[in-house]
Write a protein that binds this DNA or RNA. Structure first.
Length: 426
RNA sequence: GCCCCGGUAGUGUAGUGGCCUAUCAUCCUGGCCUGUCGAGCCAGGGACUCGAGUUCAAAUCUCGGCCGGGGCGCCA
């Protein structure tokens, strides 16, 4: 007999079935007992009577919660059960006995702290609402791939072991690579740009990025998943348009393909384009609200909160001061801004991107101007010497996006096994 | 990197010098119960982060270690 899922039992009118899963809860009333069996599709009730089979009754009702069993029996339709169906087990096999006490309650009525949950993530993930975050994440990524593939992007994989810093600034994790020192890559930036000189024209990569920053906040991780794209023969507005399509399509996908995930999620309706305000305009909003801030300064959390108060949930801040953005951002018409943008969700930065510098001499100059060593960037600069088209791109933080959609307070909840300053296991 | 805060049963908490033999819920163990669905009832079990100090007396005050949380900066 083929094992069926709990949900299938409800949906198909079979007379007899075999199910398997974890014991969610046991309610023993003496002569009758109810065992709630959980699998990835939901919970199904097993109903046991003591009279006909005393031994099976005792065997199953004395098991510990979260033990794994497989059982076979008659399917009974009953209005007394929440889901309308129950199974009357005729035989059962205990596949794995769970030890007691559990370090974290799965069916308990008390919430655990995030740290306890992460320490026991395998148990934490047995909870439906926790797994829901990862079904959402998976679906959003699937949607991103589909949107990009439809627009003729190809999926690429660039090295995570690298020789030098991508952009300066953020700190890298060094390690020993044979006889030399190497680093974990902080971003596919330089490699995806190199690919623009090849004629692929449109590339994307969904992969890990590593940053050794000693920050300790609810929106930072030392290992995160970056959704990166780079597109040749395009400018910053072209890739902002693309980003809008990617995000909106993500929402549509959830709405259409997984309505069961919608509850409690922040999925805006009827959104097509996100407003694009310039850094200068954003700064004016903050100033008008009484914040003392000078043109050229980065927008502080306080400033961003003020700006978010005057904006819809999703909006772009464009044309940033050149001095506070990386060397590869294309300077604007004036000589103080650059063609870079951030996509904001309220006060949170979700994506940053730009049109890039594609002129070899200008790029060289900009690297040097930022005090970086030209020698370190030789492998990158080479690709600009022999025919490099104009191009633009962005990096969307997968966890940041999931966080905004699922309404998570802490980015760690958007990762199965998060890495932060204090956490290296599990 | 800077600044604030916390650590009490498996989980989550109450307790601000003596009323603590430490509260409550959940949990675990045993018992009763043939329709539970946050099952109920009865009995039992289980904890003050570590070290030093102050004091007649420390979960409670002081110092240090360890572990953790939050904010800012920076970023995705």
């Amino acid at each position: 007999m083929k094992r069926m899922y709990c949900r299938e039992i409800r949906e198909s009118y079979v007379q007899e079935a075999e199910v398997a899963g974890w014991i969610h809860d046991i309610r023993n009333l003496g002569g009758i007992a109810f065992i709630l069996l959980r699998d990835r599709t939901g919970i199904l009730q097993l109903t046991l009577l003591k009279k006909p089979n005393k031994e099976l009754f005792k065997h199953l009702t004395t098991l510990t919660r979260e033990s794994v069993i497989r059982t076979k029996g008659k399917v009974q339709r009953s209005e007394k059960v929440m889901n309308g169906f129950e199974i009357l087990p005729e035989s059962a096999e205990v596949l794995s006995v769970a030890a007691v006490p559990l370090p974290l309650g799965v069916a308990d009525k008390v919430e655990s702290e995030l740290d306890t949950r992460l320490d026991n993530r395998f148990l934490d993930l047995r909870k439906k609402e926790v797994r829901k975050i990862f079904y959402l994440r998976s679906l959003l990524l699937k949607s991103v791939r589909r949107t990009l593939e439809n627009e003729e992007f190809i999926e690429t994989h660039t090295p995570k072991i690298v020789a030098a810093a991508t952009e300066g600034g953020t700190e890298l994790f060094p390690f020993r690579y044979f006889e030399r020192e190497a680093y974990l890559n902080q971003s596919p930036q330089l490699y995806k740009q190199i690919l623009m000189s090849t004629g692929f024209d449109r590339v994307y990569e969904i992969g890990p990025a590593f940053r050794a920053e000693g920050h300790d906040t609810v929106r930072h991780l030392n290992e995160f998943t970056s959704i990166d794209i780079e597109m040749a023969f395009s400018n910053h507005h072209d890739v902002m348009d693309l980003l809008e399509r990617v995000i909106v399509e993500g929402y549509e996908t959830v709405r259409k393909e997984a309505p069961e995930l919608m509850e409690g999620m922040n999925i805006p309706e009827n959104v097509e384009a996100f407003p694009r305000i310039t850094y200068t305009e954003a700064l004016d909003i903050a100033k008008k609200k009484g914040l003392r801030i000078e043109w050229g300064e980065d927008l502080s959390m306080e400033a961003l909160r003020l700006i978010a108060g005057e904006s819809p949930d999703l909006y772009f801040i464009t044309d940033w001061p050149d001095a506070i953005k990386p060397f590869y951002a294309m300077p604007g018409e004036d000589d103080r801004t650059c063609r870079s943008f951030d996509l904001m969700y309220r006060e949170k930065e979700v994506t940053s991107g730009a049109q890039r510098v594609h002129d070899y001499e200008l790029l060289k100059k900009r690297i040097a101007d930022r005090g970086l060593d030209i020698e370190d960037f030789g492998f990158y600069l080479n690709a600009f010497k022999y025919g490099m088209p104009p191009h633009a791109g962005w990096g969307l933080g997968a966890e940041r996006w999931v966080m905004t959609v699922a309404g998570l307070e802490n980015i760690r909840e958007a990762v199965l096994f998060p890495r932060d300053m204090h956490r290296l296991v599990p």
